[in-house]
């Protein structure tokens, strides 16, 4: 029997002048297996000046994300970000397929499990009957073969769960942490 699929959801948020991130690992039902989050990081004014526009990507990809990944006991099968993070030029270096999922407004595909490639790194997959297909965007480093394997895992998990929903939970958890600390 194959190992159960584990999905890692990463989200980094900025609250005021502080950054914090969380990493949620779920099974294919969306049930949490592990959740780690960082303490808020507040860059100094000098650091903000020195890093400039690269401050936020550096914090999210190099500092927060790598720190959280080190804490994982078992590697996930897929590393899922928000579409905004990926579209912003995410250039993290991880060993897992990095992708983003987003609900689309496209017409449903013929049947559940169908896929439609909209670009070299973007495709639509039909997870539920009659529902709009899910948009999947891969990071630049994910090869086509790896993309195909990742789609297979997404179809298996999407049969039981809403693939985009766990990111909302991570965001809600991080915001509750900020409110609790303030």
């Amino acid at each position: 029997m194959a190992d159960p699929i584990k999905l890692a959801y990463f989200m980094a948020v900025k609250e005021g002048a502080s950054y914090l991130g969380g990493l949620l690992v779920t099974d294919t039902s969306g049930i949490p297996l592990d959740f780690r989050y960082t303490e808020p990081i507040t860059p100094t004014r000098l650091q903000s000046i020195l890093y400039g526009k690269s401050l936020e990507p550096h914090l999210k990809e190099e500092v927060i994300q790598k720190t959280l990944l080190k804490e994982l006991k078992t590697p996930p099968d897929l590393f899922i970000l928000s579409a905004t993070e990926l579209a912003g030029g995410w250039s993290g270096d991880v060993k897992y397929p990095v992708l983003a999922v987003q609900k689309s407004q496209e017409s449903p595909l013929a049947k559940v499990g169908d896929t439609f490639r909209a670009g070299p790194r973007e495709l639509l997959i039909q997870l539920a009957e009659g529902a709009a297909p899910l948009r999947v965007m891969f990071a630049a480093a994910v090869e086509p073969a790896a993309q195909e394997q990742a789609v297979g895992k997404l179809l298996e998990a999407g049969y039981h769960m809403d693939l985009a929903e766990p990111l909302e939970r991570v965001t809600a958890a991080l915001q509750s942490l900020v409110v609790k600390d303030s």
Partner: peptide, 18 residues
């Protein structure tokens, strides 16, 4: 990065849609 906290209890307190 600062310290890493385990927050599984916090995550379990949120409703999980199935």
């Amino acid at each position: 990065a600062g310290g890493i906290e385990a927050g599984l209890d916090l995550m379990l307190s949120l409703a999980v849609p199935i």
